[in-house]
């Protein structure tokens, strides 16, 4: 899923401080699962904003809505009838949702209430960690199912570097060395011979380097 975390309330308040009415807009997908931008968090943020304005002695209308998905035209249509009631939308969906809402309602200020972080997994209750950087050319078949692009701090395709120590990365003693994980997994698979195969220079044009990406599926187009 896409993992996000809440922005500090002070930062949000600073952005919305001059508004008379604000819509807090959540999303039922990834940000709900990582508990940063779902219905519950919409309620919490709206209450915090109401408290703030109350203390300021100001009457500000705070609306709450949570859409099934903010990255989908169809669901974004659901707020068309209420959007004009608000000066500003604080979207607590991921960066995709914030932008798609802004595109849909072109003349309405839409600001983010979360920082979007990475594509990751829920390791344990309250713990998420990165697994994929969307490089557009998946290497997992040759790297034992562990990604050197997202799990190595240097994205080294032929690791580990000299900084791997007791299974940890040189930049942080809490961070597993991605290449240690790859080697452990190759060992478990009985494929250590694969370690000596050199992974060739990567074509990064399918990644960010190639500019904003787009998928067009002719078979699915209406």
């Amino acid at each position: 899923m896409i993992v996000a975390e809440k922005k500090p309330i002070e930062e949000i308040i600073d952005t919305v401080k001059d508004c008379q009415s604000i819509l807090v807009l959540g999303c039922n997908e990834c940000v709900t699962v990582c508990e940063a931008g779902g219905k519950k968090e919409v309620g919490l943020l709206a209450s915090a904003l109401r408290m703030h304005f109350l203390q300021q002695g100001r009457e500000v209308n705070i609306g709450e809505r949570t859409l099934e998905r903010q990255c989908d035209q169809e669901y974004l249509e659901e707020i068309r009838d209420i959007i004009d009631l608000y000066d500003m939308v604080v979207s607590i969906a991921c960066g995709v949702g914030v932008q798609f809402t802004a595109e849909k309602y072109h003349a309405k200020p839409v600001v983010p209430g979360v920082n979007t972080l990475f594509m990751g997994a829920n390791e344990a209750r309250g713990v998420w960690s990165e697994r994929c950087q969307g490089c557009g050319q998946c290497l997992l078949a040759v790297s034992g199912g562990i990604c050197p692009v997202s799990r190595c701090a240097k994205r080294i395709l032929n690791g580990p570097c000299g900084g791997s120590s007791a299974g940890k990365c040189e930049i942080n003693k809490e961070l597993p060395c991605g290449w240690q994980l790859i080697i452990d997994r190759l060992k478990a698979l009985g494929r250590m011979d694969d370690y000596e195969k050199i992974i060739p220079i990567k074509d990064w044009s399918t990644e960010r380097a190639g500019g904003p990406r787009k998928v067009v599926r002719e078979d699915l187009k209406l």
Binding site: I156, I198, I201, W204
Partner: peptide, 28 residues
């Protein structure tokens, strides 16, 4: 060489490149 991670230095908030790694630089 691949080089130490930038977080050790005076530009810890900078990007790293790692378009290729040290083995691939040898090949290059």
């Amino acid at each position: 060489l691949s080089g130490d991670h930038q977080s050790f230095g005076d530009c810890a908030r900078g990007q790293n490149v790692y378009d290729i790694d040290s083995l691939q630089l040898l090949q290059t």
